[in-house]
Amino acid sequence: MERLIEEIPNFFTIWNVIFLAKAMGVTFLLTAIGCLVGFSVGGLLAIFRKTKSIYLLPIRIFIIIYTEIFRRVPFLVSLLLFFYVFQIIKISDNLFLIATITVCIIATAYIGEIIRSGIESINQTQWDAAAAMNFSYYQTLREIIFPQAWKVILPPAFGFFIMFIKDTALASQIGVMELTFAAKILNNKGFSPLLSFGTILILYFILSFPLDRFGKFMEKKLASNRN
């Protein structure tokens, strides 16, 4: 304990603080890009998944296989797989890019499912009424289904954002300079693991907690609005 107190001034030097702040930025960026892409592409997947046309059947099958696969492979394994695939095809050796692409692909699978179950939570009667009034599938989604479904989609989506802030810790395994990797470097430099890992635990908490609170707040608010 004494050693720890002695170490603290040496640990929180300006250099280290900037170093950790940058790493925190990388963690945040990875998550934010992943969620943004996940929401837009996942939304598209959900929309195509609910189509009925026989011509789109191959697309629907592809979407089902895609979501099943990436929700059943550990993030770490997907990450390493993409890492090595990128090494072979030699498009880029930018580690951040590889991690971002992996996060986007997985986020798309998960958020696509969240959006799809949001769409499914809307009563069939709304679809019937819209169809009888000549709304097209896309008009029905835009005017009627999404304006109602977002209340069902947002709370689990926030839970998912938090999950991804935490899962990006695994990007340290391919050498992306995010929070966990930063802690490992500090630890290797001789700072105590208690301090290095303890600090980033707090930093992760600072990133995640506000989202957690906001998500729970919204869940409560939307639930009470609906009744």
């Binding site: 009667t125 709304q126 019937d128 009424a129 819209a130 169809a131 009888a132 009034m133 000549n134 709304f135 008009q139 005017e143 009627i144 304006p147 109602q148």
Partner: peptide, 30 residues
Amino acid sequence: REQIAIVFQQYNLFQNMNVLKNVCIAPTKI
């Protein structure tokens, strides 16, 4: 569907729109 309109047992009003919007949306948008 242009010529035949249906009123459902469970009304099936659009929950996200007020009364006026419910009545006006299809004639204006569709």
